[in-house]
Amino acid sequence: MKILVAVKRVADPDNANRIKVSSGGDAIDASGLEWKINPFDEYALEAALRLTENGASPKKREGEVVVVTMAPKEAETTLRSALATGADRAIRVEAGDDDLDGRVVAHALRKLVEEEKPDVVLMGKQTVDGDSNQVGQMLAELLDWPMATFAATLRQEQDGSLLVGREVDGGVLSLRVRPPCLVTVDLRIVSPEGVYSSLTDPSFKYNEGVRFAPLPAIMQAKRKPLTVRPLSELTDVALTTKYTKFELPAKRSAGVKVKDVAELVQKLTEEARVL
């Protein structure tokens, strides 16, 4: 099976409090931010690796995993990390964050999918910076492929179709999709029993979370192919999202402790004026 995984690097959410807005409010000041792979995309990569191996012998890849990102050169670190954990090949589409919105990304990915002809496209359900949650759905529509979003479990069946478990209110919704198809993943996909390829024994359990690259694999990753494509080769659609202003959320002021319910009610009535 060939899987294309779309990833984005985002400002490290653990250091999100360092985000600054430029003085005019027209942009986010990215200086001093640490970058890392969008967590949901990292889970998608892990899911792709699990789908293309026998869990008991994860060093042997059955099929091909291609990672793609759209970003400046610095993001190649992210791609190399993905290659080190097991992906076979990487593509970087040369683009700045200002050149992209969900629609542009979806159109560019469509062209790449047509060229690469993967069986499955995997990506995170959304990125943790823009949080727009659009690209997967738009891409499936553009490709006219079946799609399953927010996957919490993935099982590859003997006939090659994927049984996708989606956590919905009140239970789990199961969808069977037949490749070629697109799946976006949620965080529980990387639980020990999140993903099973048809090769992995049903009694096998993965370690919780994503795998990490041992040092020899990091060295090998330096020699794995990484191609760079200009954005203009893939799409010419224009940006449709325009940002008018950025502002930081208001600082939260310290809370107060109340003695009893009476005081609470009094404060809610007189100070907060919500009662």
Binding site: E76, R80, I218
Partner: peptide
Amino acid sequence: REMLDTVKTSLDQLFES
């Protein structure tokens, strides 16, 4: 530096476990 960055991430994951 780029390689150390990847190595650091991996070391963090290994030792945090």
